[in-house]
Structure formats: C-alpha cells, structure tokens
C-alpha cells in the first residue's frame, strides 16, 4: 500500500523565479516525514511538486527527478492524473466541495475513477470515514452538506476523501493551521493510525507537531528573500530536535530565527 518517494536534484520554478533548488531526499514507506522551515522556504512548493500539483499554476515547472518506487513521476509518458491518484493531498484549509453532501464528498474521487455501484461506494465511504475518525460523528447525516461541518470535521472529511481512493502516499500541506488545538489533536491521532498503511509527508509550521507526529524531519531554509529554498538538514526527528548537526537548524528549532 505504501511506496517510497525519492527526490533527486529537484528544482522548481514559478515563471523565472526559482522557488527551490537541488532538493535531495528519500522518504521511506509507512513513515511520517515532516517538512519544517520558515515561511517562503519552499516546503509547500516541494510538497506540491511531489504530486505534480505545482505545475497547475501558470508558468510553474519542475526540473530534476522525482520517483515513486523508482518510477519517474515526471516521465513524459506518465499520466498526471494517475500520479495524483497514487499520491493524495490534504490542503491547508479544509476544502470540501461546497455543493456536495458529506457522502458525495467522500466518494468524489471514486466517482472520478468511474466507480458507480452504490454498494461499493457506500462501503468505501464508511471505510474511509472510519479511517478518518469521522464516521461516528457524521453517520446519521451523510446527506447533509459537507461545508456544514466544523473546521476540524471538514478537514477530517477531506482526509477521508483523500484516502477513499486508496493512495500510496498522502501529502499534507499544513493540515492543522486553520484548526483549534482539539481538532489538531484529532488529526495528529489520525496520522499515527494512517501511518500503518500510507507514506505520509506533512508540511507544518508547528515544531511541536513535527516532533510529535513524524519519524523523519526535513528542515528547509533560504539565505534571504528571493533566493531559492534549500534542504538544510534531513534526519531522524529525534536527532533534529535534540542534536541537529547544522547550526542553522538548531537556531530555527530553538526559535532564534524564522
């Protein structure tokens, strides 16, 4: 169910602006990897280049090599929609489809893949919602609009929607930044649970969160505004937060800059 992600010399641009440069890192299956760093250091850009969402923006492009179990994601012959189905994404702000019910939101991805059988959809929706720790809260109102849920529930709904298509890798772009502490805790619990089945990469501004949920941590930074973001250090979370080998990482995690 889970696959390895490998980045080799990944450089991403917005038009002529180079957002990240020469990122090299490997994410092992069934682990949680946290990407941390100051604002504008390119961690979200890197995350979005993993499922080719980066290129959705006009003028954006990626150089270098990104593989999922040794298959090049950016190969000319690869179907981009297949990449995105394999590598799901949860966004910073909960974004359920406003016109859809809770049920329709969860099965939206399956419907896009041509699944029409009601029984299959219902089964998948229940499984995904249970995995997202949301089933008990919404099982009596699956026909109600997804946008009527609380922020934390909406985010878990989005996670359910993402894992309903059974991806290999789940990318999370600051999934808790718009949520209160209790909802955040619910999502963090969920990440522990999902780790058994998926490779998870999470961007977060919250260093306690990175320390709590991740096995490995990658620290990104920039020299100054306008420079491309670089990977400064990538190691076990334990090591990054107790005994980082680069001075800049230590400065950041102790709050001396950023």
């Amino acid at each position: 169910m889970a696959k390895r992600i490998e980045a080799m010399n990944v450089t991403a641009y917005y038009g002529s602006f180079k957002a990240i440069e020469d990122i090299n890192l490997t994410v092992e299956p069934k682990t949680v990897t946290a990407l941390i760093g100051p604002s504008g250091c390119g961690k979200s850009t890197f995350l979005r280049s993993i499922n080719r969402m980066h290129e959705v923006l006009p003028g954006a492009r990626v150089n270098g090599r990104l593989t999922i179990d040794d298959e090049d994601i950016y190969d000319r012959d690869v179907d981009v929609t297949a990449v995105r189905r394999m590598i799901g994404m949860v966004f910073q702000r909960p974004n359920p489809f406003p016109t859809m019910s809770i049920f329709d939101n969860v099965v939206a991805g399956l419907r896009l893949n041509g699944v029409r059988r009601k029984s299959v959809l219902e089964e998948a929706a229940e499984r995904a919602l249970k995995s997202a720790n949301l089933w008990d809260e919404v099982k009596d109102r699956l026909g109600k609009p997804g946008a009527g849920l609380s922020g934390g529930q909406q985010q878990r709904l989005c996670i359910a929607r993402t894992i309903a298509v059974e991806p290999q890798v789940v990318l999370m772009d600051e999934p808790c930044s718009a949520l209160d502490p209790i909802s955040t805790l619910a999502i963090e619990d969920l990440m522990f649970k999902l780790k058994d089945r998926y490779t998870i990469i999470i961007v977060t501004h919250n260093m306690q969160q990175a320390a709590r949920v991740s096995d490995r941590t990658a620290f990104f930074s920039i020299e100054r505004t306008g420079d491309p973001g670089r990977l400064i250090e990538y190691d076990d979370t334990q090591k990054i937060f107790s005994n980082p080998s680069v001075k800049k990482t230590e400065d950041y995690i102790t709050g001396r800059f950023g």
Partner: peptide, 22 residues
C-alpha cells in the same frame, strides 16, 4: 474557489472532470 479546483485535481481529475466536479 481555487481550493475546490485543486481538491478535484489532487483527486486525479482531468481538467474536464475538475470542471464537472468543482
């Protein structure tokens, strides 16, 4: 909302499917 369009694309929708979904 861009967020909805991206949600559809991230689920593996083609452009036309994204338009239909979002």
């Amino acid at each position: 909302p861009t967020a909805n369009e991206e949600a559809a694309l991230a689920l593996g929708a083609t452009k036309w499917e994204m338009i239909r979904t979002a």
